[in-house]
Design a protein around this nucleic acid. Structure first.
Lengths: 227, 227
DNA sequence: CTCAAAAGAGCACGATCGGTCACTTATTGT
DNA sequence: ACAATAAGTGACCGATCGTGCTCTTTTGAG
């Protein structure tokens, strides 16, 4: 059951468990969800509380029963969406044996997240990354921290591609290229309007896996440039 | 003179040429410049006219002598910055002979644009792409149109890498990877805080050039995954 | 120098921003 | 069932939003 097709919210929604378990927690989740969707589309700073209230069917003042300020809501949005993303990627990693097939599964899950789960708005992680990368503060720290943890895990998966394992530098270089292809796919599909970007990204990634797994061998000489 | 180190604005700044040539054109340019810088940092929709006025040292109402509305200013910002970007990349292409060295020069110029020219704010083209990719309208059309023209040019440069030339599909795949590495470099350096992303991007690109120029040969078999 | 046009300042407007407060309605523990 | 508390509403606040208007200053052509 941990390999469902949709990234699910935090567990324990039934009133049978322990803890406070207020009813309004569901509302809070709906608020965060609506705010995240708006932020992914227009940018976090361009989302007003009125927009969120209307999207979730609540009065503006009603929002303040769940968040003390706009910034607190921003923090909840970033925390929730990066948590869901990392879990979506890493949960998918475990259902495949280590090695190439596991990395293929991770790549496919990442693509599915970006191009299916967030089809209308674009991947919120990429949007937040571009928006927050030049704005130091708790929001960037939160996002950066979780993404770094995830990268550490994935770099290790790349190291396990070969026996003896790849050096950390080699694995980091491979991770850099994998993430690059995922960013490139979003850009090509959403901004440039390309078709078949899914295939292009997967082909590039397969080629990356091929040459990463191949022991460093003799390279055929490059052809001379024409004329 | 067309290969300076800084992307320069549109030509004809001397009062000797024909046309209206008003003095306030300089002010207009300063407004667009300030607005572009703010937009690259915070996002286009998050920039208020008051911010721009203060940044350029003008009153809010003074802005309206140069732009009829906020949207008109947005359009001017997008048009100017994408124009500068495309010229910066393509002008650099011409100072090298076709082939590998020309593509290396293009890649270096693109890196220089993103990581030196726009160091504080991040590349405005990437920021605008992520912000506008899900917002149909004249702004997206403008950006997409110029970027497509540039890509057409660069794909041809990739085709010229080999003799006989690469197929368009092969060249497009190579362009996809090149752009991916540039996007990945920005993400790794600005969001993840990595060091030496310049070297990582260049290494990935050199490897791409190597295997693109190499005629399709026999591939050594990939190693079996461990255990 | 003259003078019309351009550039810009100052002010005021309605709308919306984030946020508070008093109040009503719904939920929950006992 | 009943009180306590959580959830939610509506009116309202000062600030700022984009944008007109009128007025003054600057600029450039004759």
């Amino acid at each position: 059951m941990s390999s469902g097709l949709s990234p699910s919210e935090s567990p324990a929604s039934e009133p049978s468990a322990s803890g406070p378990l207020r009813k309004g927690d569901a509302t809070r989740a709906r608020i965060i969800d609506a705010a995240t969707r708006l932020a992914a589309a227009r940018g976090l700073m361009a989302v007003s509380l009125g927009d969120v209230a209307e999207a979730v069917g609540l009065s503006k003042s009603g929002l303040f029963k769940h968040f003390d300020s706009k910034e607190a809501m921003h923090e909840a949005v970033v925390q929730m969406v990066v948590e869901r993303f990392v879990n979506w990627i890493l949960d998918g990693a475990e259902i495949q044996p280590p090695g190439r097939s596991r990395l293929e599964g991770i790549f496919d899950r990442w693509l599915h997240w970006a191009e299916t789960e967030w089809e209308e708005t674009g991947c919120p992680i990429m949007a937040l990354s571009v928006e927050l990368d030049d704005q130091p503060g708790p929001l960037k720290d939160l996002l950066q921290g979780r993404l770094r943890e995830m990268r550490r895990r994935l770099v290790k998966e790349f190291q396990a591609l070969r026996n003896p394992p790849l050096s950390e530098a080699e694995a980091q270089a491979a991770y850099f290229q994998m993430k690059s292809f995922l960013l490139g796919q979003s850009d090509a599909r959403r901004m440039m309007g390309d078709a078949d970007t899914h295939r292009a990204a997967q082909a590039a990634f397969q080629s990356l896996l091929d040459r990463t797994m191949r022991p460093p061998a003799q390279e055929p000489p490059a052809q001379e440039p024409p004329a």
